[in-house]
Write a protein that binds this DNA or RNA. Sequence first.
DNA 1: CAACTGTTATGACTAGGTACTAAAAGTAGG
DNA 2: CCTACTTTTAGTACCTAGTCATAACAGTTG
Lengths: 196, 196
Amino acid sequence: MGSAALKKLRQQRLQAVLAKNPFLTDENLAEQFEVSIQTIRLDRMAMGISELRERTRYMAENAQKKLQAIASDDIVGELIDLEIGVSGISMMTVNKEMVLQKTGVCRGQYMFAQANSLALAVIDAPAALTGVANVKYKIPVYSGAVLVARAEVVRKQEDKYTIWVKIRNNRKEVFRAKFLIVSLPEERNQENENRG
Amino acid sequence: MGSAALKKLRQQRLQAVLAKNPFLTDENLAEQFEVSIQTIRLDRMAMGISELRERTRYMAENAQKKLQAIASDDIVGELIDLEIGVSGISMMTVNKEMVLQKTGVCRGQYMFAQANSLALAVIDAPAALTGVANVKYKIPVYSGAVLVARAEVVRKQEDKYTIWVKIRNNRKEVFRAKFLIVSLPEERNQENENRG
DNA sequence: CAACTGTTATGACTAGGTACTAAAAGTAGG
DNA sequence: CCTACTTTTAGTACCTAGTCATAACAGTTG
């Protein structure tokens, strides 16, 4: 094998190693690959891989954003259209972190979350709670699917709303849910407590 | 005001500022607080706050772990007990990232996720899919609540399971769901595709 | 005034690099 | 075998964002 081929192989391995563990210094990598630090640096240059500190900073910022996106966004998916009190549409792309390891099928909770949060967004109220949900999964969905959810208010009685949400992937209906949601008049806010 | 009091105030503000934005150098902080870099360093020493690079690294590692915990765990919550094909118990603590900003109430999707993943875990099958779910939220749950979910298989007909899941907080039932789950015989794995 | 706390300054050192130059080592082609 | 070329290694100066230790101020108080 020529040294040019060895070089390419090493650079690819370097990329793979850093993808798995980005917290490695050039010195660590030099030991691991049994070459000099300079070679590692040339390889990083060639592959456009930034230095340890930048990698770490990027990871910290990025993971932070992702966490916030997952945890603190009240709407799961991207809100495309919203007519308050009437209907709403949101979009969500299934990625490989959202699927079950065994089957590769998207976990039901993600579709549920998209549907439920869209239903809550449609309600014309300062605060609302899900009371009852009837859910049906029609077709399994895999990584890469672009899910379009459409929510419609079908009935409103005083503070109780009935909302239908249908999720389509590639125009086929994959999920359907009926939510009974109660809107809160902002009075009873946190009288409830959660003791041990 | 004595300078000792000023010092304490500055140190507390320092801690607060770094809690909000950990990506600040001592130089940045010195400008912001209109003191010298050395003062900032003495303050960090006094408060036991590590340097920028360590803070960044800690955040990167920690957020990474959290992301993995949220995204790639198939079971939401901690599995306490499991009798395959019969019943299972899991525990989950509601934290402040899991509640709606407006009301402080835990988002329904988390309870749904806990219940659904527990139900899937109980099934004695290599792979299973949720078909239908009937869900009822009985009492709103707030941050700090320790949710105990108990799943029970109430019927089994061929590959179709009916599973009841009840979630209690402090012995009061806050959530209840019935799942109809279909177990897959591992044959039809990924014949479905997701185009566009 | 001396003692003390708080703040700032200074110098020497560190990790983990960048940017650049130079040299050695390996690998062909003629 | 010698030359041309690529690859690898070495070494220097410099950078950031610190560390640690020492010293010198400033302001207050007993």
